[in-house]
């Protein structure tokens, strides 16, 4: 089968979870080594930035705090997982040179470690998220089951993307220069700091895109953005609002497609990857 090399590699990498979990943890600690609060800084910086940003933007855009602050915080939480899986995914294989040239290692080990690191980081962001809600005295009712499904979808998509882009940029290094700047653009194009219905013109108190008026140019702009689907399957369950079923289908289909593409490129290029590092 054309995917067999890639699948075997992924299975071998999954078996080494003890190692990538440890490495992800050390990476987390390394970021804030020798600071007083250590890894808590990851959460603290999220708390300070998003906490203040929530107040500022709610004021600028005349949104009620109890609607806007959790929306922004949940969106930031999701985006800070999705975006680095792409930007750091680009360098995850080339950056693994030290390990890959010293002993035989499955290539997918590195994307898995990256995803694990960002899940840990998201855990710290989630604590900050709760703290922000507590400060503003806002109560949200998450849906844990749907949240878990949403996390699985974005994680699969993230690992697939990191594998795909990580390998592609071994052979085409310019991707490492181009894509991060495009991701800055994507941040503003995706409904994170703005709410889709401010653009689409639907019910402003409805957090998911309002499609009761059918498809318009503006709603199509929102719906053509793949990042929006991934954000919604995390943000919806986290804030407890209803996400249309079609969003779950689109997000999981793209995630599966990304994983298959990642494994396909891995199967086709595996022997050449290490020689080109």
């Amino acid at each position: 089968m054309i995917l067999s090399v890639g699948v075997a590699d992924l299975v071998a990498a999954l078996r080494r979870h003890e190692l990538w979990r440890v490495l992800a943890l050390y990476q987390l600690k390394r970021g804030n080594a020798r600071t007083k609060f250590g890894i808590a800084w990851h959460g603290l910086s999220f708390f300070i930035l998003v906490g203040l940003m929530g107040f500022m933007y709610a004021t600028f855009m005349h949104r009620p705090l109890d609607l806007y602050v959790p929306y922004l915080a949940a969106g930031q939480l999701g985006w800070r997982f999705i975006s680095p899986m792409i930007t750091e995914g680009l360098t995850v294989i080339t950056g693994g040179r030290g390990l890959l040239t010293q002993r035989p290692f499955p290539i997918s080990f590195l994307p898995l470690k990256l995803a694990c690191y960002h899940l840990y980081l998201s855990g710290l962001h989630a604590i900050a998220f709760i703290a922000i809600l507590a400060i503003y005295r806002i109560i949200v009712v998450p849906n844990p089951l749907l949240l878990a499904i949403g996390l699985v979808i974005v994680t699969v998509a993230g690992v697939g993307t990191a594998l795909l882009l990580g390998i592609a940029s071994v052979f085409h290094r310019w991707l490492q220069n181009l894509i991060p700047s495009l991701m800055n653009l994507a941040f503003f194009l995706t409904p994170i700091i703005w709410m889709p219905n401010m653009l689409v013109g639907g019910d402003a108190n409805h957090l998911s895109v309002d499609l009761t008026h059918g498809f318009t140019g503006r709603s199509t702009f929102v719906l053509l953005n793949p990042f929006y689907y991934f954000l919604e399957v995390v943000r919806g369950p986290l804030l407890g609002y209803q996400v249309p079923l079609i969003f779950w289908f689109v997000a999981s289909s793209i995630a599966a497609a990304l994983m298959v593409c990642g494994l396909l490129i891995l199967s086709r290029t595996k022997p050449r990857i290490i020689l080109n590092l």
Binding site: Y26, R30, L99
Partner: peptide, 16 residues
């Protein structure tokens, strides 16, 4: 991992 203890590095290297 230079920031981790000797014991932690024994475990790390064993896993590697």
């Amino acid at each position: 991992e230079m920031a981790e203890t000797g014991y932690d590095n024994i475990m790390l290297r064993g896993l590697i």
